[in-house]
């Protein structure tokens, strides 16, 4: 939802990032305000996950130019955990498996850490158990999720639900959901999308990263950005996603490459 006079949560300017000396992000500009849902679309390999991980603070990427402002903080000064404390959340495209750590133990540790960082009350194991089970209902998750090791042996769809469960628990200001629809069948997609919609309000914001428009039928974006070769080459409203669906990415890419030549 676009809210007039809404405060800016995220302001990315001229962001360049590389990994192992190879430049992946080549000048990204993006502004996200409270209440907004942004979709970043683009073909595989266009740099969407890289952008998401750079926002979350992955140390493998080197920021070579540009700035990221998150509310009143310079995000690039903060290590990943402080970005999380500040209210940034990334639902990973490929969440890692952590054998040996029970999911409930991990969820409670993450929850209590964030709570205490924000000066809020922590929950003991029994209280947390009730709390997390309530949130799991929202996502139609089986209780045995809690006792299994973090993501270990989870199906693709189960991993995604576990990510959204964390989003529900940690109440971020800005959520970046990287390909959260992959691995979900249509019923699961509806459930998870419904969960995300319930978490959304006028004070937080979401960036949906996807290369399918399908997800956007259920979580309707205010803005759609098309990413290509490490840059956002086109921005529009939700109708842009539908246009991409019918016309493919080629016309955007051709269009952007021709404008590139003009500006170069």
């Amino acid at each position: 939802m676009i809210v007039s006079n809404s405060k800016t949560i995220l302001a990315v300017q001229g962001l360049h990032a590389s990994i192992n000396g190879k430049e992946i992000l080549k000048g990204i500009d993006l502004t996200v305000k409270r209440g907004e849902i942004h979709a970043i679309m683009g073909l595989n390999g266009s740099g969407k996950s890289t952008f998401a991980k750079v926002l979350a603070g992955h140390s493998a990427y080197e920021i070579t130019a540009g700035s990221i402002q998150f509310e009143n903080k310079n995000l690039l000064d903060l290590p990943p955990e402080e970005r999380a404390h500040a209210g940034l959340f990334l639902a990973f495209q490929y969440p890692v498996e952590i054998p040996g750590v029970a999911n409930i133990q991990f969820l409670r540790l993450a929850y209590n850490t964030i709570q205490s960082q924000r000066g809020k009350e922590e929950l003991d194991p029994l209280e947390f158990d009730d709390f997390v089970r309530e949130k799991m209902k929202l996502l139609n998750m089986k209780p045995d999720f809690l006792d299994r090791s973090v993501n270990e042996g989870f199906s693709g769809g189960e991993k995604k639900r576990n990510e959204i469960l964390q989003m529900a628990l940690l109440e971020p200001r800005l959520s970046i959901l990287d390909e959260m629809d992959s691995g979900l069948d249509i019923d699961a997609l509806k459930t998870v999308a419904n969960g995300v919609n319930q978490i959304m309000n006028k004070d937080n914001a979401t960036i949906l990263v996807t290369h399918y428009q399908r997800l956007l039928d259920y979580i309707v974006p205010d803005f759609v950005h098309v990413m290509h070769a490490g840059r956002i080459v086109l921005t529009g409203g939700k109708e842009l996603a539908l246009e991409l669906e019918t016309r493919g990415y080629d016309w955007v890419i051709n269009h952007s490459e021709s404008t590139n030549k003009v500006t170069a």
Binding site: P80, E81, L90, F92, P95, G100, V101, F106, L170
Partner: peptide, 25 residues
């Protein structure tokens, strides 16, 4: 594993806590 450490960090865990959790695992 660096990716596991990053995952835990992105959930707010300090590097020391993340390390001991993974060691425990």
């Amino acid at each position: 594993d660096e990716e596991e450490l990053f995952y835990l960090g992105s959930r707010g865990l300090s590097p020391a806590t993340a390390r001991s959790l993974l060691t425990y695992a």
